[in-house]
Structure formats: structure tokens, C-alpha cells
Design a binder for these strands. Sequence first.
DNA 1: TTTAGCACTTAAAGACTTAGAGTGCTAATA
DNA 2: TATTAGCACTCTAAGTCTTTAAGTGCTAAA
Lengths: 351, 351
Amino acid sequence: MLTQRQALILKNIIRIYTQTEQPVGSKHLMNELPIQVSSATIRNDMAKLEEMGLLDKTHSSSGRIPSISGYRYYLDHLLEPSDVSSNDLAIIQQTFNQQYQMIDDIVEQSATILSTLTSYTAITLGPDVQDIKLDGFRLVALGNHQVMAILVTSAGTVQNQIFQVPESISGEDLEKAVRIINDQLVGQPLAVVAKRIQTDVPQMLMKYVSSPKGFLDIFGDVLKKAGSDHFYVGGRLNLLDFANNDVSSVKTLYSLFEKNDDLANLLRLPDFGTGGDSDKIMVRLGDELTPHTLRNYSLITATYDVHNHGRGVIALLGPTSMPYSRIIGLLDLIREELARRLTDYYSNFDD
Amino acid sequence: MLTQRQALILKNIIRIYTQTEQPVGSKHLMNELPIQVSSATIRNDMAKLEEMGLLDKTHSSSGRIPSISGYRYYLDHLLEPSDVSSNDLAIIQQTFNQQYQMIDDIVEQSATILSTLTSYTAITLGPDVQDIKLDGFRLVALGNHQVMAILVTSAGTVQNQIFQVPESISGEDLEKAVRIINDQLVGQPLAVVAKRIQTDVPQMLMKYVSSPKGFLDIFGDVLKKAGSDHFYVGGRLNLLDFANNDVSSVKTLYSLFEKNDDLANLLRLPDFGTGGDSDKIMVRLGDELTPHTLRNYSLITATYDVHNHGRGVIALLGPTSMPYSRIIGLLDLIREELARRLTDYYSNFDD
DNA sequence: TTTAGCACTTAAAGACTTAGAGTGCTAATA
DNA sequence: TATTAGCACTCTAAGTCTTTAAGTGCTAAA
């Protein structure tokens, strides 16, 4: 356990290091502390903190920098989120007050705000798709053997895709098939639908339609799209600033941003779904981050809860040394705001 | 005018510098030339080439590097495109042989191949939309006050967008409006359609529909999407390798890639549309590139001609020192291949 | 427990040296 | 006249040395 003064010293070394990115020396720190102690006293405490593994040196006679464990301790015991500045607040309100056509627009927009306000990179994920149901399926003929398949879910999300239809499938067949799909499968969870088109649905179609295979491929493709998570990444370019010229990690991250599965893995919270602490904001850094290339970064994740419509995730990726107080305050506010807007949206929607 | 030997020297300095990125000295060059001359002779020619502005030095006693004018001269007078390697050829054929659902997929795919084979950044643009006509407009009700608007063009491209429909607009009104649009405007060039919905169409709708304004906003939005160019950028990440740690220019380019208008400006060829030389491959470098931040890069543009369906552009952005022979051979092949595939596509399509 | 004092360490920056690659010029050569 | 050998000169890059400033750890006194 740290003495009060040691905690104060750790806290201030982290604060100063975040501002300057330079090792902090005892004399310099002396002038920055609210208490009056000599630099020798500070040196003694620093030595103890280093012994505990909370501080590091860049070389044997340098000032101290926080170690990963130091950040960990700070985050777990010392951090107090600060209030959002009135300036930031105004920006947030104003952005959320825009008119949106789709929920995904709101989720995407919150990634943009978050990255703009922090100069880091934000990742957001819409409310989870666990028990989303099929709300309807349409095929629209576009002429020239093209059709657009449209799938609407109970969450209000829409997926569409365009297909070249082989000559062998007739228009009437397609219409019949659509009718059967809607009659039989609307109202069922997407996961169930996905399973059934592998099992009993083909036979069901076989009775009325001459070539169910091509049709089911189309339906299956759109279904897959609708059933997978949709991530939004804001402030990709900010990465170039805080990546400290580490081109290889920038590349890793940029390609990671393009892959749904990798992003899902990155954001997956250790206790996701257990309920307990899941509305706490979590910070992971160093070896706690799973793709090992990211050990010089810090990832802050927060979930937001949309009343009766699942929960989503907003996250922020930045350097290990961030002004955590401000950042976490900000994240907390945006999380709440996003939850509120989405809850509003759905309450309109379900009327 | 250069002597033969001077041309040989310039050509080889460019070749070696492209491989090593190091200034080329007279002794080193002596061993690389197919002719037997002393380093002193080479030095004399180098001095003359420098006087003409075709070579530069990095400092007073350094070897020579090509100047921008040197590249210009090389490109205009000395360059001979080389044949595509059988390996590259196989990759190109294989990629283009995939099954595509839409023409835009092919165009996008060619940006990917081009960037993969070169390790630079490729930009492609589909056949131009000058005299594309409206082929059809659909509104599909999705439930919960949402509709999807779909616009099909004579070029086979499809745009869609989802709208929240105000309660004030009724379903029958929308259907009537769609019917009028299709009756009156199908077959007309998009530009004409865009003009007419500002002039006589509103009055036309007014007779049958109670609130044409909201409807025309929707139609106008999708129309605008369909009428604007669609660029594809491949190999964005490669930029990080050849940008020589110039983060600011990387940022400029990345944001440029997101803006249709800026990309259009960048690719717009000085003689675009004049017909004459327009199927020549053009290289622009240094001050010839309009956003001044790009003066350290080289941009190669080539147009491809889709029989009876307009012409598009494929382009490659890389460092000033590229293996131009290989690159231009490659670009020429892909340009032809792309034109052929699209011509095939349309000939199927118009049956 | 805190502090003053001091010897010691290290990185960063500047001065100096050296080696190596290259140039330009002159005078000899084919 | 065009080419070449030879040589003095230039400049960078890399290494060594020195100095300075910031910082530490330890000891002994308060």
C-alpha cells in the first residue's frame, strides 16, 4: 500500500509525463507538488515506487517515467474522472442533435465526435445483434438480370446487395420464394433463420420453386451481412500522430480496422455479458492488449445500454500516456448520450 | 539535344538511383555501363547534364541524382515500356477472371491488383457518367416509416439510400410520384433529370401528389449520388512506405482520398476530352501536380476506353523514382484488360 | 523522518579527426 | 578533338573526446 505522499508523487509524475513526454526529476517535481518537501524526500519515495515496479528510469541517472504497472495502479486506485468541459459538452450536444436517417449513422457519428475531441482513434459498435429477428425480405428487380436483395431486421437495420440472376431462375420463382421466406421466417431470430436455410427451408422451397439453390445463396449472403457486427472507426489519421513513427504498428492497426472479426476480438471485454461490472469503463494497456503489436497503446472501452435493445461498445485507442481523467469523463458522457439517443430512436420506432 | 552517350548516362543514373536511392558516382556508373569509357569521360558528360538541369547533386562533391527535369526528359524521350512479366500476367488474368456482380466491382478490383503488383497506391475511376440516362427509380417500403430509394442508370450502376418518411407523406402519394417519375423521366440523361426536378417536375407532381417537396428531396439525393464519379483507392497503406516519413503529406493524401472532388481534380488530365493523345499514358511529377503537397510524388494516369460506354481512368501514385518501364507496361496491360472486361460486360448487358 | 550536501552517472550537444567517395581541372594522349 | 590519367580539393558520415546539465543514491546531520 502506498503512503499518501507516494500516491501523490505517482499521480503527479503521470500527470507531468503525460503533458511533457519527458522523464520527471525530483527537483522539477518538487515545484509541482501541492506539499512542501525537499527533493531528497521525493527521491526516497521515488526509489520506493520504483522498487514496487510502479516507476521506471530511461537510464541509471535519469528522471522517472510511469511503468505499465504504474499506470495500472493509477487507473485502479488514484484516477478521478473529471467533468466534461462546457466547450466539449456543447460540441457533443450539437452533434447528437442532428437529424439521422438510421441508427448506424448515430453510432458512426459518435466515433467521429470522440476522435475529434480527443485526437485519438475511436471505435464504436452498434447495439449487439444477439436476438435480432428477421423483419422482412424483399427482392427488387432492377432490369438486365439484376436484382437487389433487401433484408430488414427487428433492430431497424437494413442490408442490401445486388445480384446477377442466372437466366435459369425465373421472376415468378423468385417472387414465390420471397413470399415463402417472409411467411415462414419473419419474426424468427437471425441465428435461427441462418440455421433453418441450411436444414428444412430448402425442401420447403423445393415444392414451389424449381431452383432454390441460387435463391438461397442470395438470401444467405444478405443474412450474413445483417447478422454480423458493424464497427465504425473515427480518427484513423490521428493514429499517425500518436504512433511515434512506428509504421509497422500503424499498418497492423489499419488492416485490423478493416476486419470485423479482429475488431470484435480487440473490443471483446473480459467480463462481457456477465452483467456485474459491465458498465464500468475499462482501460487496457501493455500486455493486457491481445494483438501483441499494440503493447505501446492504451485501449479504453465502455459499453452503453439501449433500453430493451441490447448493448453496444464505444472505445478509444491512444498512447499509453493519455490525460485519463478528461478522457474517461468524456467517454462516460458520450456513452450516456448515445444510449439516450438510441433509446429515444427505438421508442419512436416501435410505435 | 543529348549525345547518345549522355542519354545512356542519364538513363542509367535513373535506373541505378531507382534501385538504390543513393547518389550515383562516376566510377560506380563506369562499371554499370555497356560501353567502355573512363570515369573522367563520364564526369564530363555528367557535368554537361547537370548544366542542362537534368541532374542534381546533394552536395558539392557528391554523386548525381536525377532532377525533376531529368525525369521529365527521360519520360519524354528515353523510356521504353517493358513487357509484363509472366508472373504478373498470371495474377492479372486470374483476378479479372473472377465472377463480378457489378461493374464497379471490376473497377475496384483493378485498383487492388495495380497496387498489389506495384506496392504503390492506385486510384481507379469507372467509365464517365456524362451521358448516362435514368433507367428506373423504385421506392421500397421497409416498415416503420422507412423507405429505400433505388435508382438504376443506363450504365448499369445502382444507387440506393434509406429515408425516414415523415408521417405527412402517404404511401399512395409516393407510389404515384414514382410512377410519374418513371413515365416522364426514364431514358433522359441524368443531367437533364437533375435540371427538370428543379423546374417543371414539381408542378407536374403537384397535380397528383399532396406534398412533392419531401419526395423530390429523396429523389434528388439519390440522383446526385448516381451522377457523381466513383473512385476506388487501392493500397492506401503502401503510402506509408514510400512517403519517406512525411506524415503531413500522408495526411493530406488520406483526406484527399475521401473527397470525390479533390480526387477528380487530381486525376483530371490536361487534355481530357480533346481526343487526340488521350490514350497515351501520362506521368506527372514535381510542380506538374496540382496540390502542391504532392511535389515529391509521381502520378501516372491512363484512360481506358469502354466501347460505346465512355472512358474511365486508372492511376498510380508513387515516389518520383519508380521503375517506370515496368510500371508503365503494367498499367498499359491493366488498362486494356479492364476495357476488354467492361466491354464484354456491357455487351452481355445490352442483349 | 526529513534534509543538506556531495560524489557519481548519463545523455545530449558540440568540437575535432579521419576515411572514403566523389568532383573539377589540367595536362598528356590517341 | 575527344578521351583519359592524375591530383588537389570538397563534403559527408562515423568515430572520438569533452563539456554541460539534469538527475540519482548515499551519508551524515537536523
